[in-house]
Amino acid sequence: MAVNVRESRLGLFRDPDAVVNAVESLRKAGFRGTDVKVLTDTPYPEGAFGEETERHRLYVFPFVGAACGFSVGVLLTIATQIAYPIVTGGKPIQSIPPMIHVIYEGSMLGAILFTIMGILFESRLPDFGPTPYDRRISEGYLGVLVTKADGRADVAIVCSAKAGP
C-alpha cells in the first residue's frame, strides 16, 4: 500500500510492552487505528499490541479459483475429445470417470493459484514503493509506524518517546 514517507514516522522499540504503550498513546492522541501500524519480524498473536485488526476477504479466493479451474477442466476434457475423437478401450468419447480426474486437478489448481493471488493481494504485495522501514526490525526491534502524521509528527514522536525503550 502506498504510504507517504514524508507524512510518516517510524519509532523503534526493543520491548513489546513499550509498543503497547506507544500504540495506546498514539490512539489517545487522536491518531486513527488504521494509521498506526506495528512492524515486527515475528508473527505475534493478533491484537498483541492493541493495534486495529483489519478485515480481509482471502476466503473468497479459493472458491472463485476452484470454479474457474472446474470450468477450464470441463472445457478441456470435453473439447479435446470432440476435437480428436478416438474410441479407446470401447469407452464412449465423453467418458465421465476419466474426465473427473482432470477436472478435479483443474479445480484444485485453480483454488490454489487464486489463494496465492489472494494472499499477495490481501497482504498488499508486491509493494516496491518507498516505505518507512528500518533494517533493525529484522534484528528483533519492533517498529511503530504512523502513516499519516498530518502535521502532527511532533505529537507522534513524543507519544513514542514516552512509551519506553
Partner: peptide, 26 residues
C-alpha cells in the same frame, strides 16, 4: 516484494499456511 511485517501481513501469512495446507492435502 516489499514485505514489512505489518500485523496484517503476519495475519495473512498465518492463514496462508493453514489454508494452503488444507488445499494441498487433497
Amino acid at each position: 516484494m516489499g514485505f514489512q511485517g505489518t500485523s496484517r501481513q503476519w495475519k495473512l501469512q498465518t492463514i496462508a499456511g493453514i489454508l494452503l495446507s488444507a488445499l494441498i492435502l487433497p
